[in-house]
């Protein structure tokens, strides 16, 4: 083989490792996990089971997508689960008890989600408090409002359209999986191919330098939080459809799953780095792990232990890899 060709291949390899190194290790972990599970239980590697894993991962995937944007800017959002509940349960309550038109319902849920993002974004950028604190507060506020508005009740029997969002199929593919793929494709495009995406990375990489390069940091941040809120509302809708019911306590603790998926997917908590497909792999990896452990009849308590270990392990591998690179 000519040396020029080898050089080209080397450069190509370096580029892939440089740009997607963190994601590569997650993909490798996912493959290894799938291999192990398919040996341990024959039921794992069946079409039906794979589809059900993807279905089970879809809500976390949608919630983690907005979180990826937020974490790339070096911020965090602890209110995702509460926002999903706020948007989902208020909409569900109105549809079930007051016969709200389901199309208006969808619009309402997405608007409520976006509104919460707008408020978070404005509070964070104009008052200048850290996102961690702002969303720690709003986590409680949105949950409280959801419970108060619905009176703590559960609303059963949602309109068909909403059920379709959570339970429908197009051919063999569940609708939530299709929604996931669509929103990820759009997000990936925005992050990779537009000035808005580059500005997002720039803010996470060095907010001051981004500001001094003429990027309107506040405006980008507010828009990102709106986008994130929109996706949280969407997640709440899909969840409502899956459960065919809504309640104020739905999606409790989902924020931690979302953050975990982002981190496992190789996005740096320090900001400036990360790609959305990594998050999708991270969310699926968590789904596969839960599914596999269920198939193996491992207790849910041990499952919690396993997920926790995977998070720490994933980040350790990534951090070792980085220090090795330097």
């Amino acid at each position: 083989m000519s040396s020029a060709r080898i050089e080209t291949l080397k450069a190509y390899k370096n580029r892939i490792q440089g740009a997607y190194g963190s994601q590569l290790s997650t993909v490798a972990a996912l493959i290894v996990l799938c291999l192990i599970l398919s040996i341990l239980t024959p039921r794992f590697l069946t079409t039906g089971n794979i589809i059900s894993v993807l279905l089970q991962s879809s809500i976390n995937s949608i919630l983690a997508l907005g979180m990826t944007f937020i974490i790339i800017t070096g911020n965090i959002d602890l209110a995702v689960g509460s926002v999903a509940a706020f948007a989902g349960s208020i909409t569900g309550f109105l549809m079930v008890n007051y016969g709200l038109n389901p199309f208006l319902g969808i619009l309402l849920a997405l608007s409520l989600g976006t509104l919460t993002g707008l408020i978070s974004g404005l509070v964070i950028t104009s008052i200048g408090i850290p996102a961690f604190i702002a969303t720690l507060g709003s986590m409680s506020v949105w949950r409280g409002l959801a419970l108060q508005f619905t009176g703590g009740s559960t609303s059963f029997g949602l309109p068909e359209i909403i059920k379709y969002l959570g339970q429908g199929y197009v051919g063999p593919i569940p609708v939530p999986v299709i929604i996931t793929v669509i929103v990820y494709s759009i997000a990936s495009f925005i992050l990779g191919k537009t000035p808005f995406g580059l500005s997002t990375y720039a803010i996470g990489g060095n907010e001051q330098a981004a500001h001094l390069s003429g990027i309107n940091v506040k405006s980008v941040k507010v828009k990102l939080f709106c986008l994130h809120g929109f996706l949280s509302g969407l997640g709440g809708l899909v969840l409502a459809g899956r459960l065919n019911s809504t309640m104020g306590v739905m999606a409790t603790g989902y924020e931690l799953d979302a953050i975990a998926a982002v981190v496992i997917g190789g996005t740096s908590m320090f900001g400036g780095e990360g790609i959305v497909w990594g998050t999708l792999v991270g969310a699926v990896l968590m789904g596969v792990l839960r599914n596999g452990l269920n198939l193996l009849h491992v207790s849910p308590y041990w499952q919690m232990v396993a997920i926790g270990l995977v998070i720490v392990f994933a980040v350790s591998v990534d951090s070792l890899r980085r220090s090795f690179d330097e």
Binding site: Y201, A202, G205, N206, Q208, A209, A210, L212, G272, E273
Partner: peptide
């Protein structure tokens, strides 16, 4: 370092 460039870019 802190104002002119984004070092990781």
């Amino acid at each position: 370092k802190s104002e002119g460039l984004i070092q990781m870019f």
